[in-house]
Design a protein around this nucleic acid. Structure first.
Length: 326
DNA sequence: CGCGTTTGACCTGCGC
DNA sequence: GCGCAGGTCAAACGCG
């Protein structure tokens, strides 16, 4: 929350209401320690006399005028102080809410990731009961992680998508807009349904792998686990930008909606690895980077949104009016 | 014939 | 060190 923004808005708000109120000051400085910018609308300097002022047609002595000024100054200072306190309280509430949001999202992320035991994390992840996709990730260097396969698994960007399919559909295919090549299938201990292993076959150098397995709890739900980051754009985007027809037969698109039933899916495969990709795609919705991005974006949007600041200014000025009328 | 899938064997890491 | 389980490889197979 930017105090300067609020100050500016208050000034604008005040000017808009000038016609209906004559007791306002031209400039409202929210910094309680400073009264430099304070100007009183009701005082007008007389061009001929330096020691006296004409207020509402009545000539006042310097003593009377200074008394009036001091009174006005004290009143405005009191208002200023109240405003500052209100703003401070609002900022505290905002920060508390924001930290609460971040904590909540971090807890969800930690729940997903057990950092020491890969296999155990798999087991616990399968039982979290979430239908909407979730993921965990950490910033990593792909080249470094290639040297240490185990660390790669831990550090690699891992995301998860849940897709509802027909029970009769045994294909274990999750259409997410990318091109996959199946390289293995295994029946795991904790799940009687086989797990299929896929590699991204669109780009030979693409390190992304995908595991697809039916959920233990609900076998109509396919759990797709993505590991790593694509070092290329989705085929759908490349096709759209280049106009190439080579991929015409590839089922593309991030919304694999089946006509026979409801399908819930998330395209979690957008990469934020390179700046070029970051420009072309949004960060993953459920990664910590995305969380941070989301929080910052929300805060930025709120402070930059003229509607929000105007509403805030209106609320504060309304409060001030009620204070003045008392 | 080329490409993708299947499937059993092999490799690797972890727990006991 | 051994056994177990997950992950990967690669030859065999099927399809267009």
């Amino acid at each position: 929350m930017n105090i300067l923004d609020l100050d500016l808005c208050l000034k604008i708000e005040k000017k808009a209401m000038n016609s209906s109120s004559s007791s306002w000051v031209d400039s409202l400085d929210l910094n309680a320690s400073s009264t430099k910018s304070l100007q009183l609308e009701t005082t007008v300097s007389h061009p001929n006399t330096s020691n006296s002022l004409i207020v509402f047609g009545r000539k006042l002595s310097v003593k009377e005028e200074s008394g009036t000024l001091m009174e006005e100054l004290n009143r405005v200072n009191a208002e200023n102080k109240k405003l500052t306190e209100m703003l401070k309280a609002m900022c505290e509430s905002y920060n508390a809410l924001q930290s609460q949001l971040v904590d909540l999202m971090n807890k969800n992320t930690e729940k997903e990731l057990s950092p020491t035991k890969k296999r155990k994390s798999e087991t616990s992840n399968n039982n979290n009961g979430n239908i909407i996709g979730n993921s965990e990730s950490s910033s990593t260097d792909e080249e470094e992680s290639c040297k240490k396969p185990r660390e790669e698994i831990i550090k690699a960007k891992i995301s998860r998508a849940y897709v509802r399919t027909e029970l009769s559909d045994t294909s274990l295919v999750v259409k997410d807009g990318y091109q996959w090549r199946k390289y293995g299938q295994k029946v795991t201990r904790d799940n009687p349904c086989p797990r299929a292993y896929f590699k991204c076959s669109f780009a030979p150098s693409c390190p992304v792998k995908k595991k697809v397995q039916r959920s233990v709890d609900d076998q109509s739900v396919l759990v797709a686990t993505y590991e790593g980051e694509h070092n290329h754009l989705p085929p759908s985007q490349i096709e759209a930008t280049s106009g190439s027809s080579r991929l015409g037969s590839v089922p593309v698109g991030s919304t694999p909606v089946k006509s026979s039933g409801p399908t819930i899916t998330l395209d979690l495969t957008n990469s934020i690895k390179s700046s070029d990709e970051a420009r072309n795609s949004k960060p993953k919705l459920d990664s910590p980077e995305a969380t941070q991005y989301l929080v910052e974006h929300m805060a930025s949007s709120l402070t930059k949104d003229p509607n929000f600041t105007a509403a805030l200014a209106a609320a504060i000025s309304g409060r001030m009016f009620s204070t003045n009328s008392n």
